[in-house]
Structures are given as structure tokens and as C-alpha cells.
Amino acid sequence: MNRIVKKWLGLSLLLGGLPLLARAGAAEDSSRVRPAHRRIVFQFDNRYSVIDGKLVGINGLKLAVEWRGRLRAGAGGYLLSNGIPSQEVLPTGMPAGTKAELRFRYVAAYAEYLFIRSNRWELSAPLQFGGGRFFTSFEQPDGTKSKDAKSTVWLLEPSASGHFRVFPWFGIGAGAGWRETLFVEPSLDEALDGPIFYGRVKLFLGDLYKTARFKRKLFSQQHFRYAD
């Protein structure tokens, strides 16, 4: 756990030293952006990860409150987009041809500090702590379904993320981090620990609305020459 916290702190310090790089690509720096004192942030947080040695997709939803454009805190829920085929020996009594898939779902509280917030750039360091269940789902040839005993899993997920606005209403983003399981047996620790990463296309609906309302050109860069 200590090494994961150190990695996250290292990422945080690195991001903290990047404002000059971001300002080189943005007409307005974060000191001139005046976000609302407090606002609600809703996000589809879909990412990829490695679980039990296999690349998998994880679907998630997050809801948070943002303060002064610098700190977000909230909670989210996650589950595998598809089960992971299990290579373990079937339990006694299961007929040949039974399908076995690993399933994993969890909820997490998270905090995210935005090191850079400008009209163009956003760079942040999210940290999540949560708990969930890991189990195997069985489907026999006759359609009978069952599950084995669920294992409780605690996890810590430090990461770094960011996005760049190509247009006021459209941006691209990416992020990467690590999932570390806590207080679990060694076999689960080995299966569930692994990297997390994602790429995103982002639509900023508020800016899209303003573009339509004030009849700005859809692909204009003029927005980045002045503060909102």
C-alpha cells in the first residue's frame, strides 16, 4: 500500500509542475477562469484494466460536487462489461460444458484535485477508495445458473487524468493509474492488482448550448481568446 501512495504522490508532484506546459497551449490560464463556487459533476467513467491477466472493460458512473473549480469529491459504482472466462477447475458436481466466468463489481468514494484548469486544459489527480465483491458465475448446459461464495474486496486506485479542448464544446482526454487490493488473500491480490487506463471523447453540453445560443461558429477558436 505504501508504494502505491508514493506513486500517487509522485504523480501529483509531477502534475503540479506542469502549468507552464499547459499555458503554452492555452490563451487563458486557470487564474482567469472563474468557475462557479460549487457545481454538480456527473460522469460516465468507463475504463480498461487487467484482471486475472486479461484485458477487460469496466463500466462506471460517478457523481460528485466540485468546489471552486479545484476540488471534486463524490462516489461511483463499477462493474465488468463482460465476465472473464475462468480457467479454474469446476467444482465437484458441475457437469462438463459448464461455463465459468469471473465477475467483479464495486463502489468507491473518490477525491480529485485539479492542478490545472484553463479554457483549454485540465489536469488532475483522482484517488479512489472502495469495496466490492469478486465471485465466479456458473452456467450449466441445461441453463441452470449459480454462483460461488463472494469474496469481499477493498481497493485503492490512484491515477492521473486530463483533457484538451479542441473546440469549446468538444475535447479529448486520457488517464492512467493503478488498482491495489487491500486486506485480501494472496490469490485475489494477484488476480485483481493491475493498471487502469482510458481514452475519452468529451462533449461539454454547457458550452455547446452557449455556442448555439450566441450563434458562434461551431468550429471557431475565438472562445479561447477571451475568458467566459
Results as ranks from 00 to 15, higher is better:
Gly25Glu: 08
Ala26Tyr: 02
Ala26Asp: 10
Glu28Ala: 09
Asp29Gln: 06
Ser30Phe: 06
Arg32Asn: 12
Arg32Lys: 13
Val33Gly: 02
Arg34Ile: 10
Pro35Val: 05
Ala36Met: 11
Ala36Asn: 12
Ala36Tyr: 09
Ala36Gln: 13
His37Pro: 11
Arg39Met: 11
Ile40Tyr: 13
Ile40Cys: 09
Ile40Asp: 13
Val41Ala: 06
Val41His: 05
Val41Glu: 06
Val41Cys: 02
Val41Lys: 03
Phe42Tyr: 13
Phe42Ile: 13
Phe42Met: 14
Gln43Tyr: 07
Phe44Tyr: 14
Arg47Gln: 14
Arg47Ala: 07
Tyr48Phe: 15
Tyr48Ala: 14
Tyr48Pro: 03
Ser49His: 03
Ser49Gln: 06
Ile51Ala: 01
Ile51Arg: 06
Asp52Trp: 07
Lys54Asp: 08
Leu55Ala: 13
Leu55Val: 13
Val56Ile: 07
Val56Ser: 03
Asn59Glu: 13
Gly60Ser: 01
Gly60Ala: 02
Gly60Val: 00
Gly60Thr: 00
Leu61Glu: 02
Leu61Asn: 03
Leu61Ser: 04
Leu63Gln: 08
Leu63Ile: 15
Leu63Phe: 12
Val65Lys: 03
Glu66Pro: 01
Glu66Phe: 01
Glu66Lys: 02
Glu66Ile: 01
Glu66Asp: 08
Glu66Arg: 05
Gly69Thr: 00
Leu71Pro: 00
